[in-house]
Every structure is written in C-alpha cells, then in structure tokens.
Amino acid sequence: MALFDRAWMESWRRLVNADEGLQVIGRYFTADLIFSFGDTSYLVSIKNGAIEQIREGTGNAPRDGLAFRGARDVWEQFVQPMPPPRYNGIFPLVFGKLLIMEGDEIVFWQNLRALTVMTHLMRTASR
C-alpha cells in the first residue's frame, strides 16, 4: 500500500465506515466528493456518513457535490501524524487556498464537522 493508491483509499474507507462518531454526525451527509492528490483522483460517494463507493478517475466537480484538488505534497503534509501549521485540517487547507474546492459550496459548510473527522482519518490510514 502506498499513499493515495487504491489500497490506501480502501483502508481509509474502512476507518471512516467504522467510526462511531461519523455514524452520528454524518447521518444526513450524502454527497459525491472528488479527491485529487496531484495526478491521482477518486470519486468518493458518501451515503449517510459512510463511504459507499470509491471510483478512480476524475472530471468536473459532481453535481450536488464537491471536488478537493491539491498538489500531492500538500496532501502528504496533511496526512502526517502531526501535520505542520496550515496543513492540519480541511478547513485551513481550503481557507488558506492550499486546496482548490470546486462544486456546491453548501455541501462543505453543511457537513464540515463530518468532513473534518473523515479527512483526519486519512492520517490513520497512512500509518
């Protein structure tokens, strides 16, 4: 398993789907999200706070969803066990323009807590 490969994504999916908190706070979180790690992209389908499906490839931001696009080294910093300043969360990454967010912005604001917890679990997937 290497960072951001298919096996890593599946490892992250298992962590997300096993997280007790997400089962509560993500109950109404259903959306398609694109994560672009440099040249590697996935379409992640979230249903009720769990990752239902992961597909490789990319395209435009999904309708009623979001795309998070960033350079590979930005994500590499983010997934460190102790990420450096400015790289420690999805909110600072987007607000600090280290990630480009495209799509339906309301999905981000409505589900920021679940998104934050979900993306934190990428750190555990990287260990």
């Binding site: 909110f91 309301i106 604001w109 409505q110 920021l112 998104l115």
Partner: peptide, 25 residues
C-alpha cells in the same frame, strides 16, 4: 455569510471550523 445561514447549522459549522485552527498537539 455561511456562519449564519438558514441551510447551515451555525453552531456545528463554527465548531468544526475552529477544530483545525487549534494545534494537533
């Protein structure tokens, strides 16, 4: 505007945004 918007829970979104302007340590 998102901090106070009828389609967004203001308390949840403010709390979630603040979580990651704290240090992971």
């Amino acid at each position: 505007d998102w901090w106070w918007h009828p389609h967004v829970h203001g308390g949840e979104v403010a709390a979630a945004a603040m979580l990651d302007i704290m240090a992971p340590q």
